[in-house]
Structure formats: structure tokens, C-alpha cells
Design a protein around this nucleic acid. Structure first.
Lengths: 344, 344
DNA sequence: TTGTAAGCGTTATCAA
DNA sequence: TTGATAACGCTTACAA
């Protein structure tokens, strides 16, 4: 019979600690999870053994036995552009305070990929999930239902959706901004949108602009629309296409700040004064807005508050202290320097 | 005795699948992990059961039994500014192709937090780890050693460090850039650095500039240095402080592009022409460089290649096909528009 | 306060 | 090709 305990034991287990501290594994477990239920002297002995051995619990075993991982998951569309970074940061801060670990995955804006990520996070035992927007496969929601995983949608507010959400009204926010643009005399208004497929935020922002147009008796269908990928360069290219039209738009609404930054750059490239000859607006209010020149007028998104509240809600839901809720946050216009009156 | 199988069973297990397919759990497991070892007809029956039940393996149990998680971890200093996004993306692409999942954690540039993240990722059974830079606590390295977790350091190259790394020479790259600045006649050169504590990349970049100065017989200690936090606004503030000196610097080297973007903004704020009155350079070559005006001259970092190669190396190390290696990649100057001759 | 021992859901080793 | 069954490392009644 070969020794079950070779000389160098690379990974100490609970049993090793127990042996060294001359107690049972149950006591060691208690020391770690409910220290007050163990006498001070025993505890000291156990903790010393833990130290000496460099013991760390095996996560898989722990999850298996306790049926709880103390892990939340978040699936965001992208890690680039720092769009979701600030909100996620706030989300994580709250979780860390409560001793839960955050696992982050990104889907690249692909619903199929997101479904896979959800599956993976569930399999890993995520206790709860943070999601962005409502658009996803039916199977994604089915899994969450089946496993009864608390989840909350952020970055969107839809009172009719049958799930918790903490977000803002993308449509209304863009409608408000569009109304302001109209108030400044603009009539030839164009729109650069992110791909709307599988992205309700993008879709609703376009709809918001159209509804504002319609509210003033203008034809929403007449608004030139460029739908393009999420990048600075795509924004620039889309702006270029838009400005080749005759007559030229006097205002270009962008579905997000990154596209707007691209548009702004292209305007300079074309020698167009912003906002003198053309106005440009963004959406999201990320740091980039203050970096570009002129600074970008945009819609402010309450990144940190969304993140914090989502964390609290998920924590409550997991603990059974909440059955979920729908929260509508404000997303006001952030005035900077790229929106001006329509040129004469 | 209460029923062990209540009516609605939210989470199907291997056993449920086995029961439904009328085979043993061993056969189901084989179907999932080594399909060719199961007869076609049995397999069909099992897969059908899997489908019908919506079965997904329990990750914890799987990890426990198989002693392998097929999960790699990456710990980056920050998710903001998209600094590490591109490299991480490339890293993940390779892993995904090989069927391994990536877990990402961020440390906020705090070594203690990073140690905690390493501990957590190890406990979760990460098969291998991607790290940024060499600076971390001794305990961090001790854990990796003890558990024999393959790991690779990126974003830095240190031939003397006793571990694998795939990076570039931060010091040499900044020295080269500084030499170019000197060649253009600049003598009053200042430096804006990220916090160097626990950040070898930042420290080496400063050292690189100093060594270039020394190589020309200039006094490195005379170079004004502002060490500040990693943000656009801190960069602007640091630049402001620097430009209040008399005589004013004619060139400001920045430890990274974000700080440089802030400096650029502040220069405009102060009505200073770049590069006419003052030159500004960055480091990292992130997308931001092309967004700012004028476009930023910087040091190009091979983000994607670093990520890809790190993934390959870690995969090989896990498979026992490599004992690790040290790779030095090039980090050439990326010429754009913010470095000009020293003003007369 | 502490120990015993029965799981938790897989994988993997043997036999059949 | 398939099935029993012993791990895997931990938590948690229940007993002492």
C-alpha cells in the first residue's frame, strides 16, 4: 500500500489542519465559518495550524457542501471603452464589503455568447447575476428561472418586463435630448446608432429620437440613420457618410459617447466647426466626454448608483429579504459644448 | 421520512439524467466527457435526457472530482481606461478556442488586494494565472509556488526574475523615447508618472527617462517629476503644476497615455500650443491616442501579441509541454503629432 | 464545546 | 460497452 501522505504535500486540506491542531475537521470548519462557536484556546490552536500549513479552503468542495458560493456574476457586453467599468466598480465595492466575490464575463454584444456565459456562471454556482439590458435569448431567461437565480437587469428600465431592473428610460432620455436639439432650431437631424440587434438600449435611444420628432409633427422616417459598430473609427466613418448628404444635417445625435467622439474627430477632419456648423451629442457620460474637444454634450447615466443599488438588491434577493423590484433612475442631460443653435 | 425528490426538482443532477436514460451515472459522465467511449444508441438516449432535463454539470463537483477546472485567471490592475482590455481580449480568444474559461479580477493597483485575488482564484481552482508586472507581495509568489500554479507575468520583461514573463523592456522603451526628445533639442524635460509604489512598469519608465538623461551627461535628478494617480484629471493637474515652474519645461513625458491626455487637455486650457510651445508624449498606445488632438506620440505596446503568447504559454505549461519562458517583445515609438522640436 | 458521520455531484478505477 | 463504487474536500445535523 502506498502512503496516502507523501513527504511534500503541496495542497493542505481541512483534514491536515485538523490533524495538526489535534481536533476534528468539523471543529476546523467551525473555526473558519463560525469562530464564536469554538472555544478561544481551540480556536487559537486551529488558526495557528491554518497559518503554518498555508491552508485555503477548496472552493469546489466548499460550494458542493454548502450549496452556496458567495459569488455573484456580472455579464457585460464589452470591457472596452470602459463603458461599464464605473458601474461595475461600484457594484463590486458593495459586494466586497459583504464578502462576496464578483466574476465578470463579457459577451461581445452577442446574445448567443451571453447565453453561454450565463450557463457557465450558473454552473460555477453564481448565487446571483447582474445583467445589462433586457434583450437576450429565451433560453437565457429559462435557465435563470429554472435555477431560481436572483438576477437584475441594469441600464434599462421597462416596467412591463417580468423581472427586476435598476435602470433608466433610454427612450425618454433620448427624446428629451432630441427635444432640446429641436428647440435650438435644428430640423435636419441625423442619428448614428450602435447595432440595435440584441441591444435594447441602442434601439430605444433611436426610438426616443424618433418619438421626439413625431411629437413636433416631423417625419421620424425622414431622419437619416447610420447603424454601425461600437468604435471610435466606426463613429467617424458614419459621420462622414452622413455629412456627404445634401442638404447636410445640422445636428448629429449619437447613440453613445464613443461614436460621438468619432463623429467629433471626423468633423474636425472635415474642417467643420462644432457646434457652429454642426452639433453633435452623445449618450452615457463616460470620461471620454471631457477628453474630447469641444467637450461633449451628452446624457448622464447614473453609473455608480446603478451599480450600488443592483448589488444591494441582489444581496437582499439572495437572502430572501426581497422578491425583487423595479427602480427607475434619472438620466438627465449633461450640458457641455457640442450642442449649439442651428446654423442660419 | 421526507421525499428526497420533491415534485419540482429545480436542478437536475447526473443521477437524474442517468435514471431517465436508464443507465448508470458513469455512463452519463462518459457521454459528456468521452462520447466515443459510449455506443451510439446509448449516447443518443443519454443526450436526449440531458436535453429534456436541461442538465448542466455542477462545476464544484466536477472540479472536486476531476482536479482540474479548465479555468484560467487573470488579475489586472484596473478595468478602467481599457488599458488592459485589448491584451486580455486576445488572451481570452486563444483560451476560448481551447475550451478554457477566463476569470478576470482587478486589484485597483493594490498589492494586498491582488494577493487576496490570487488566493481567491487559486481556491476556485484556476489552472493557471496571468499577471501584470513583477511587483507583488512575497506571499503572493509563495502561494503560486506552493500550489505549483503555472503563471506568467506580462507588461514587463526582467531577465533576472525567477518566473515566466512575456513583455517588453519598459525602461529601455522610455529611454529610447527620451533620447528622441533630447535629439529634438529639448533640455527642460519633465515627467508625469503614475504612482510607482507596487508598480514596476511605472517605476522603470521613470528610470528609463533618467538613464537617457544621464547618458547625455545631464543630471537625472534635475528632472521635475510629478507622481500622481491614474486618471485624466490627475494628469491635467500634474501638468498644470509643472507648467507653473520657471523656466517652463519644453517637453513633458508621461508614464502613460491617460496622463498624457490629461496633460494635453490642460495645455489647451492654458492656451499652450502642442507641440509648438510644449511637447507631450505618452506610453501604451491605447485608442485614446487617436482621439485626442493633436494625436499623441507614444510608445506602442504589443497588446494583442502579449495576450496571445501568454495564453499559449500558460496552456503549454499546464499541459507539461513547457517549463516556462521569458520573451522580450518590441515596444517601438509610435510617431504622431505631439512631439516637436524644442521652441527657440 | 467538540466529534462522528452523512451527504454534496462529479470523475475514475475496476470488474463484469 | 457498461455498471458499482470509492474517492474528492468540505459543511452540517446530530450525538456526546
Amino acid at each position: 500500500m502506498t502512503s496516502r501522505r507523501p513527504q511534500s504535500k503541496p495542497v493542505p486540506t481541512l483534514e491536515d489542519v485538523a490533524e495538526r491542531a489535534r481536533v476534528s475537521t468539523a471543529t476546523v470548519s467551525r473555526c473558519l465559518n463560525a469562530p464564536q462557536r469554538v472555544s478561544a484556546v481551540t480556536r487559537a490552536r486551529v488558526m495557528a495550524a491554518v497559518q503554518e500549513l498555508g491552508y485555503a479552503p477548496n472552493f469546489g468542495a466548499q460550494a458542493l457542501a454548502a450549496r452556496r458560493t458567495n459569488t455573484f456574476g456580472a455579464i457585460i457586453p464589452t470591457m472596452e471603452n470602459a463603458i461599464f467599468a464605473r458601474g461595475l466598480q461600484a457594484f463590486q465595492e458593495v459586494l466586497t464589503d459583504e464578502g462576496v466575490t464578483l466574476l465578470v464575463a463579457s459577451s461581445g454584444y452577442r446574445p448567443a455568447a451571453e447565453e453561454e456565459q450565463i450557463r457557465s456562471l450558473i454552473a460555477r454556482g453564481a448565487d446571483a447575476l447582474l445583467l445589462i439590458g433586457h434583450d437576450r435569448t429565451a433560453e437565457s431567461y429559462a435557465m435563470l428561472e429554472r435555477r431560481q437565480i436572483p438576477h437584475v437587469v441594469t441600464w434599462a428600465f421597462d416596467p412591463d418586463a417580468p423581472r427586476s431592473s435598476i435602470g433608466f428610460d433610454n427612450r425618454a432620455a433620448m427624446a428629451t435630448l432630441t427635444a432640446e436639439v429641436l428647440d435650438r432650431g435644428h430640423r435636419r437631424i441625423a442619428f448614428i446608432s450602435a447595432m440595435t440587434n440584441g441591444n435594447d438600449r441602442a434601439r430605444l435611444r433611436v426610438e426616443g429620437a424618433r418619438s421626439a420628432l413625431a411629437a413636433r409633427g416631423l417625419d421620424p422616417a425622414a431622419m437619416p440613420l447610420e447603424e454601425t459598430e461600437y468604435s471610435f473609427h466606426h463613429g467617424a466613418a458614419a459621420f462622414d457618410r452622413l455629412m456627404r448628404q445634401t442638404p447636410r444635417p445640422t445636428a448629429v445625435l449619437c447613440g453613445n459617447d464613443v461614436l460621438a467622439a468619432g463623429a467629433l474627430r471626423q468633423a474636425r477632419e472635415m474642417g467643420l466647426d462644432v457646434p457652429g456648423e454642426v452639433s453633435i451629442t452623445g449618450f452615457d457620460d463616460i470620461e471620454l466626454c471631457e477628453i474630447v474637444t469641444p467637450a461633449l454634450t451628452t446624457v448622464h447615466v447614473p453609473h455608480r448608483e446603478m451599480g450600488r443599488r443592483a448589488a444591494r438588491l441582489l444581496l437582499d434577493m439572495r437572502g430572501g429579504d426581497s422578491a425583487g423590484e423595479r427602480v427607475r433612475l434619472e438620466a438627465p442631460i449633461k450640458w457641455r459644448d457640442t450642442l449649439g443653435p442651428a446654423p442660419a
